[in-house]
């Protein structure tokens, strides 16, 4: 299994290279540049700025310069927040995003799996319908509605938690963003769990277990859940990566200092190095988590072997 993991890591390098290449050139296709603003710059000044950031060189040369920098671990300067390098911005934002994302996934797992299991046990009943309806709120109401609503009701009307902001990272600032982040995930996890649980509950080994007279709770927890969790596990890889790299909506509305807004704002600002930086982080994270999921599969399911 170790050699398998190592091989995966090694093959990830060319993949990453392809991703960097695609992203670099795709981004440059977009019209408009980082220094276009409501004040059109005199051509000479624009040339000065472009030269200061090597943007006046041919695109291929810029690409090679970028690759050279990346190999040295330098993500370059941010073109928008000029006092910080991309590395510094990511280092300062990633911990918040990852913490919130991870908490949200854990919360989604706990609630989603319980809801899904409950629904599957009472398939097609009123319980099934209402539990699934509740869990689906997260994908039926856009999060840019849900998040301000939470902040308004809980932050302003009830005054239980701060409306937004980060303070110095106290817990009370994180509760609402985590809930808002978790809601759509709860829906997906509950649905996946319900689907596979229904399937597992009808399978032979569960029938056998029941026939042997095991208590229902034991059957569900010990046997069925272990089988039913597999699709959830494979969903978790990409989902965790996506949630842990932050969300532009949640971060904007709750003022979270994460890196999620950079995916959108840096692209809209044409802050090329920052866009590249977050894309690389995302790609690395998703590959890492997919590997983890595959390894977890081997642990959960003895039939799966990697060599």
């Amino acid at each position: 299994m170790l050699s398998y993991a190592l091989r995966r890591v090694v093959t990830a390098i060319p993949t990453l290279f392809v991703i960097i290449t695609i992203a670099f050139f795709m981004m440059r296709l977009a019209p408009g540049g980082p220094f276009d603003s409501d004040r059109a710059l005199p051509p000479e000044i624009e040339r000065n700025i472009q030269a200061a950031y090597d943007l006046d060189k041919p695109l291929v040369e810029q690409y090679l310069i970028y690759l050279g920098r990346i190999l040295k671990g330098d993500f370059g300067p941010s073109l928008k927040i000029r006092d910080f390098s991309v590395g510094e911005l990511i280092a300062s934002g990633a911990p918040a995003s990852m913490e919130l994302g991870f908490s949200a996934i854990v919360l989604a797992l706990i609630i989603g799996v319980s809801f899904g299991t409950l629904a599957a046990l009472r398939q097609n009943s009123a319980t099934d319908f209402s539990v699934m309806s509740v869990s689906m709120i997260g994908i039926a109401v856009p999060n840019f509605v849900m998040a301000p609503l939470l902040s308004l009701v809980i932050g302003v009307y009830l005054d239980l938690l701060p409306t937004s902001g980060w303070g110095s990272g106290e817990l009370r600032y994180k509760i609402l963003p985590v809930i808002a982040l978790a809601l759509p995930q709860i829906a997906y996890v509950a649905r996946l769990t319900r689907g596979s649980m229904v399937e597992v509950l009808h399978s032979n080994f569960v029938r056998t277990a029941r026939a042997k007279g095991l208590r229902e709770r034991l059957v569900v927890v010990r046997h069925a859940l272990k089988g039913a969790i597999m699709p959830v596990v494979s969903y978790l890889g990409p989902a965790t990566a996506a949630v842990m790299t932050g969300s532009v909506v949640i971060e904007t509305i709750f003022g979270v200092p994460g890196i999620g807004t950079y995916f959108v704002n840096a692209a809209l600002n044409r802050d090329y190095p920052l866009v590249m930086g977050v894309i690389i982080i995302y790609a690395v994270l998703i590959m890492l988590l997919n590997l983890l999921v595959d390894l977890l599969y081997a642990v959960l399911d003895p039939k799966v072997r990697y060599s």
């Binding site: 894309i279 995302y282 790609a283």
Partner: peptide
């Protein structure tokens, strides 16, 4: 393609 953030595609 999976490893590229979906949001990036959409914005581009």
């Amino acid at each position: 393609l999976y490893s590229l953030p979906f949001m990036f595609f959409v914005i581009m």
